Simulated scan of single mutants.
Amino acid sequence: MTDTRTAITIYHNPACGTSRNTLEMIRNSGVEPVIIEYLKTPPGRDELVALIAAIGLSPRELLRSKGTLHDELQLDRPEWSDDQLIDFMVAHPILMNRPIVVTPLGARLCRPSERVLDLLPSAQQRAFTKEDGEAVVDERGQRIVR
C-alpha cells in the first residue's frame, strides 16, 4: 500500500531559488517527493492541461515572462488562445512558471514558496529559513505569519 503522505510531486527547476525553497519545505515535512525537472522532462500536452485544470489557473496565468522567450514570442498579446499558449509551453517548457506541487491535498503554483505549506499533509519538522534569510517556519514547526 502506498503512503498517501508521500504522494507529492514537484515540477522543479534546480536553478530557481523559489523552487529550491519549495523542495526543501516539502523535505522538511519528512517526505521525499517525486522531483520532475520539467526542463529535462517536460510534461506532455495532456499532462500540462491536467495540471492547469488542477491548479485552477488559466494558461496565461501559468506563463512565466521573466527570463524566457515570452517577450520574443509576444505572448502578452491578447489574441493568443489558451490552446496556443499551452502549445507554446509544451514546445518551450521554460515558459511554465514554477514550482508546481501536487499533493493529496491539491495542486498549486507555489509562488511564493511558502504557499506549499498549505498543501503538505505532514507538519514541518523543524525551523525553516529560505535562501534569502527569511524565516518561514519556527523551531516548533509552525508557520511564521507576517
Score class of each variant (00 low, 15 high):
36 I>V: 14
38 Y>P: 01
30 G>E: 06
61 E>W: 01
128 F>G: 02
93 P>F: 02
63 L>T: 10
100 I>G: 06
131 E>I: 14
30 G>K: 00
132 D>C: 00
74 Q>L: 00
79 E>T: 11
22 T>L: 08
39 L>Q: 06
103 T>K: 08
11 Y>G: 11
65 S>F: 13
41 T>K: 10
63 L>R: 07
40 K>V: 03
116 V>C: 14
100 I>N: 04
138 D>M: 13
143 R>A: 13
114 E>V: 15
6 T>N: 02
104 P>M: 04
69 L>W: 09
9 T>A: 05
50 A>P: 11
105 L>T: 11
141 G>S: 01
99 P>D: 11
144 I>E: 06
139 E>M: 15
43 P>W: 01
11 Y>N: 08
35 I>P: 09
53 A>Y: 03
141 G>W: 00
129 T>E: 02
120 L>K: 01
5 R>C: 14
112 P>S: 11
38 Y>A: 00
66 K>C: 03
37 E>K: 10
5 R>W: 00
115 R>Y: 11
111 R>M: 07
44 G>W: 02
136 V>M: 11
88 F>D: 06
5 R>F: 13
107 A>S: 13
28 N>Q: 12
91 A>T: 09
118 D>V: 04
78 P>V: 09
41 T>Q: 13
104 P>C: 10
21 N>L: 05
72 E>L: 12
67 G>A: 06
72 E>S: 13
84 Q>Y: 03
24 E>D: 15
70 H>V: 09
110 C>P: 09
60 R>V: 10
128 F>I: 04
103 T>H: 08
117 L>C: 13
54 A>N: 13
84 Q>C: 10
9 T>D: 09
80 W>C: 11
117 L>Q: 12
81 S>T: 15
85 L>C: 06
100 I>P: 06
12 H>Q: 03
25 M>R: 04
136 V>T: 10
108 R>G: 13
69 L>N: 14
146 R>T: 15
6 T>M: 13
44 G>H: 00
41 T>M: 08
132 D>E: 04
15 A>P: 10
88 F>E: 12
35 I>D: 06
136 V>Q: 09
91 A>R: 08
142 Q>G: 11
11 Y>F: 13
49 V>C: 07
143 R>M: 11
54 A>L: 04
145 V>L: 13
2 T>S: 01
3 D>E: 02
44 G>L: 01
